[in-house]
């Protein structure tokens, strides 16, 4: 055991590991009103940047049957809506955390629920975030929950992005 843990390390791997631990971290969240596409956006981003692994993609495709989907046959919100009740109702109930890394940075994204009754879960996700992404459906404009979430973000001192 002790032998296995002291390998003749390759300098390249060493540098790579040093780089990994030295990366900065950005924690952000998506929020906004119900059905404005928060979970779908995160699922889509993960998919497009190829961060959904093969076995997860297969189960995602299976679960997306009987749902409104795009060309890929995938309902992207299912990538983050992990609870059985969320899948049945097609809504997000609690905040989901997803982790990903790019060459420059590590990210933790909190995907938060839009429903009024789950606003406390949105605040839970927002409390540890440094950046907020407020989603607005162009067809519906700014709704009560959009305002409420924006207010919570400003109360918690988060720099905002509108989309």
């Amino acid at each position: 055991m002790a032998d296995a843990l002291t390998p003749g390390t390759d300098a390249e791997i060493d540098d790579w590991l040093a780089e990994q631990t030295g990366k900065s971290l950005l924690r952000f969240l998506t929020c906004g009103s119900v059905d404005d596409g928060k979970s779908t956006l995160i699922g889509r981003l993960l998919y497009d940047s190829q961060l959904i692994l093969d076995d997860q993609l297969v189960s995602l495709k299976n679960e997306s049957r009987n749902r409104a989907t795009g060309d890929e046959g995938i309902d992207f919100s299912l990538a983050v809506d992990g609870l059985a009740a969320e899948r049945e109702q097609g809504i997000t109930i609690d905040v989901a955390y997803r982790f990903f890394t790019t060459n420059k940075r590590k990210f933790i994204v909190a995907d938060t629920p839009g429903h009024e009754q789950y606003t406390r879960n949105m605040a839970t996700g927002a409390s540890n975030a440094e950046l907020g992404l407020v989603l607005v459906d162009g067809r519906k404009g700014i709704l009560t929950q959009t305002r409420r979430h924006s207010f919570i973000l400003s109360l918690l001192g988060i720099r905002m992005w509108f989309w």
Partner: peptide
């Protein structure tokens, strides 16, 4: 995917059951 939703301090009732639809807020 269900662990992605769980709090750090995650409450269990007397039957050791988790209620994912009614988790406590956990700020900062």
């Amino acid at each position: 995917k269900s662990r992605a939703k769980e709090r750090i301090f995650s409450h269990r009732n007397s039957a050791h059951s988790w209620d994912p639809k009614n988790q406590r807020p956990e700020l900062w």
